[in-house]
Amino acid sequence: MTASSASDDGGERLLDAEAIARVIRRLAVEIVEQTGGVSRLALVGVRRGGVPLAQRLAAEIERAEGVAVPVGSVDIALYRDDAATALPDPKIGPSEVRFSVDGRDVVIVDDVLQTGRTIRAAIDCLLDYGRPRRVWLAVLCDRGGRELPIAADFVGRVLDLDAGTRVDVVFDGEGAPRVTVRPRVDPRGAGGSR
């Protein structure tokens, strides 16, 4: 999930639009190479931050390979490990996987990987749509701090940051794409720690 209010104020810029574009081009190449071609490939973005990223990756793959790979999205609200004890999510979006995942290589795409809890939930959600041949994980930033045994297969940038910071990825919103880091203000904020 990306924060919305972050602009340039106070945040230290880690990646600018140019750097992000380069990272995405590289990730697209790696994904095609390692998953063994585009014929059975699909991308699934984790709502909301992972979705525009998945679309950009798909566009990049299509540009390079001439094939449009299917893109879906999953909303993990109903799969959170604290779903029954925390407050209900203020907004649940529908997941959209409009293709059969059976037998495919599905790449889960998210913007920031930290605890791994979101990805655990995303995997569970994905498997309710069928049985992929293999599930992969691509993230724009890996900032460490894992609380589950989860690792990304494709990483845009590894960030070495204090636990008390928050990474904001602005990709689809106001202004140029950017990744910024700033001190965490609200510990219950918009999911930066998940």
Partner: peptide
Amino acid sequence: LDTAEAFYEVSRRPVRKVPTLRGK
């Protein structure tokens, strides 16, 4: 009604079940 939209989609998946209220 907005929340129900998400659950409407759940009922159309191959696996029509989510773990949300486990233990309730």
